[in-house]
Simulated assay, not measured.
Amino acid sequence: MGSADIILVINLFVAGLLAASFMTLAIHEVGRVAARWLAFSYMLGMAYFAAEFAIPAFDDARLPVVAAFAVFLAATIAFNGGLAHKYGVAPPWAPMLFFLAVASVGVFTVQDLPRHSLTRMMAYQLPYAAMQSTALIIVGSSRQRRGRLDHLLMTVLAASAIQFASKPFIAGALGGWGANPQSYVQTSYALVSQSLGTVFGLALALLALAILVRDVLAEATSKSETDVLSRLLNRRGFERHAELAMGDAVRQGVPVALVIADLDHFKGINDSYGHACGDLVIETFAGFLREAAAEHHVAGRIGGEEFAIILPGTNLAAARLFAEGARSAFGALPIDGLPIEYRCSASFGVAELAAEEDFSGLLRRADEALYQAKGAGRDCVRVSPGPTGRQKKPISGKG
């Protein structure tokens, strides 16, 4: 058994391990369809390596060679389908499958050309380069936010497309790819080609695995940080995301404010109308916060009837106006399950981050302002002008 044969066997087992890894990930809801397609891709990869290993056993290798080519190209198409599902792009099944049929016919046709013909070699390798380029387009066209792993995946896809396109020239430099298909695995080119395939195939697989695992972990983290009733961040999640948002605002040199709200007389609502109505009040206020918040704002339910929203790029005056608008709008909303004339209200505390202040200090001051609002009769807004300043009067509301 030559070196190329050994690499083929290694590739066969590696493809099997990768297929099993993707199938394991497919048990999770996040990325389930993508993982299944990627697993199928590496199952096809196993079939391809097995076919390559078996080709020397055939006297007439024309059909086995075309079949091996078609199986490997189908594996790249399945891989593209997995990426498309991962990145929220409609998989271009029809053009890819049409391309598979045309390329397979093309490879069958060039079997009559001289073994070392550049046209024949290009007919084998350019379709693979085209599918890797398609994968690059799929990832690049996604509207999902891309991180470092996604950009690295795009880089490796581009490099893989280039190496497929360059293989005919590599074969020429290394003395060709054998006098016939049976002798291919004994050539220096086969060793280089299979080694390149191992490197790029493994790199793409590991990156795809890492990206799917990242998404699964992110989903698990999101669920652990999300309040079920309000569908806002819970206290743990809010504090983590708020500190990140605050840190970004400080680095950018923009102000950041925190608004804390508490639903007034909430216990009375539960006692008089039942906990189901109380839940509806929480859901209504949370929905209102989601609609009022901008994309870069961070909102959460940090207590039973207490909510908070951090506003990067917003100073104290603008945050106070936000709170006043929220107080006024929420007070006018009818709540299902409550008497038609009943209106709920909320009290608000507002603080702007001071120089050298940390998140806990900002949270404490906003909370103190909230308690001043509750002490002033509720249904009003109070602001904290600074760590050592005196409390300002509200611009509107009760008190």
Rank of each mutant, 00 (worst) to 15 (best):
V30E: 13
I27Q: 06
M23H: 03
T76I: 09
V66G: 12
F40C: 10
A68N: 13
E52P: 06
R62I: 03
I27W: 10
V71H: 13
F79M: 11
A35H: 05
V30F: 01
I27K: 02
F72Y: 12
P56F: 00
I27Y: 00
F79Q: 09
M46Q: 05
F72R: 15
R36A: 00
V71E: 14
F79S: 08
I55P: 05
P56Q: 02
F53Y: 10
A61Y: 05
F72D: 14
T24N: 14
A20R: 08
A61F: 05
A20T: 08
L63D: 04
F69C: 04
Y42D: 00
Y42S: 02
A50E: 07
R36G: 01
F79H: 09
E52H: 10
L83E: 02
A20G: 13
V66N: 11
F40L: 12
D60L: 00
M46P: 06
H28Q: 10
G82D: 11
F22C: 11
T76F: 11
A20D: 02
A57E: 12
Y48N: 14
A68G: 14
A51Y: 03
A26R: 04
L73C: 15
R62K: 08
N80V: 11
F53N: 04
A39L: 05
D59I: 07
D59L: 06
A68M: 14
N80G: 02
F69W: 12
L63G: 09
A68P: 15
A20W: 12
A70V: 12
I27V: 08
L38V: 06
Y48Q: 12
F58I: 00
A39F: 03
A50M: 07
L38A: 03
M46V: 06
V30Q: 15
E29H: 09
G82Y: 05
V30D: 11
L44F: 13
R32D: 03
R36D: 01
H28C: 11
R62G: 03
V30H: 06
M23Y: 04
G31W: 03
A74L: 15
I77E: 03
A61W: 02
F40Q: 07
A75H: 09
A35M: 01
T24I: 06
D60C: 10
V33S: 00
L44C: 11
T76V: 15
F22N: 07
F22G: 09
A39W: 00
A67D: 12
L25S: 04
S41L: 01
L44W: 09
A26I: 01
A26V: 09
M46K: 11
A54G: 10
F79R: 11
V66K: 10
A50W: 14
W37F: 05
N80I: 10
A20H: 09
F53T: 06
D59V: 07
P64M: 07
S41P: 00
I77R: 02
L73S: 10
A57H: 15
L63R: 07
V65K: 08
V30A: 11
P56R: 03
V66C: 14
N80R: 05
S21E: 00
